[in-house]
Design a protein around this nucleic acid. Structure first.
Lengths: 161, 161
DNA sequence: TCCGATCAGTTGCAAAACGAAACCAATCGA
DNA sequence: TCGATTGGTTTCGTTTTGCAACTGATCGGA
């Protein structure tokens, strides 16, 4: 292997591909927000989870401007959340979630559950997430190792040096 | 009560306070992202959960520009995620999370857990979330009503009309 | 194999959002 | 009482976003 090989985790990049400093390098929340915390990235991930594969799939489902979509797909690919699967020479290469991308599923689910509870008027209709049997997915709530419920008041962040 | 009373759920607003259309009105994920899906809002919520109460608390912890912070605090307050608690006449009014704001805790936790797994090099140090006993909080994973694990492949979104 | 339609972007330009720094009035605290 | 701190606002330059038009490659049917 050559000296300048790619790291396991690509990190942030600006639109020219230069790597950029993290907003708050020690905080996992901040790093995740640096990677997907903009108006469109999480909706692209949502649509990929919902079956979107091609550029126009994403464009039509989200309604995002095409230049911004191209940039986001490039950035999410560089960050290792999406890949383009090979399809033979001269073939179009559909996008697919990597394992890291699929691992955002709990994030999408908690965003969805918060939205269902707090971003709709009482009688307003919205889509719902259901399991294979068509039953609604239960709320995702943090619990301690012993199963007791946790809130921001009963947890703390331990800073390791 | 007067005619133009506030609705239960304030919805989106631009910086002048005018209400704005949702990106994807039927999707709870998109509505949540419309409210907190920018570079700073979730970090403000994170810091509020971690004890930040004053303007300078937030400014120093996040490093955000002051004008942008003022805008985000206003916007999060208008969206019903933050309030300013009364403190007597001529006193400063510290910010506090509303119940809706506190309910973002599972979102912060899943973002954190994804970041811990995918946004750090193998040996790189980062902060960790612990419960009252100092034990790490277990991963938050979607499960069906019967307790079986769920992924984006084993769930679907039911669109209600 | 030709040809029109679709796909996957790129380019150019205007509008909006962001960021740094300076500024200001109100509150705090000694 | 008086200087320091707080909680912003204003100004101005930079960056990001969005729209529309354009390009070249692929697809698919005759």
């Amino acid at each position: 292997m050559a000296r300048d090989d790619h790291p396991d985790h690509p990190g942030r990049q600006d639109k020219a591909g230069r790597s950029t400093a993290w907003t708050d390098p020690a905080c996992p929340v901040a790093r995740t927000v640096d990677l997907v915390g903009d108006r469109w990235s999480l909706l692209i991930i949502r649509d990929a989870m919902d079956g979107a594969r091609s550029f126009t799939d994403f464009q039509q489902r989200t309604g995002i401007a095409r230049n911004i979509l191209a940039d986001r797909l490039r950035r999410l690919t560089a960050a290792g959340l999406l890949t383009q699967v090979e399809a033979g020479p001269g073939k179009r290469r559909p996008y697919a979630l990597t394992q890291a991308g699929k691992d955002l599923f709990p994030v999408i689910v908690t965003l969805r559950q918060w939205g269902e509870r707090h971003a709709f008027e009482p009688g307003e209709t919205h889509s719902v997430l259901v399991d294979g049997d068509g039953a609604p997915v239960p709320d995702l709530l943090p619990v301690a190792a012993d199963g007791s419920p946790l809130t921001s008041d009963t947890t703390s962040v331990r800073h390791v040096p």
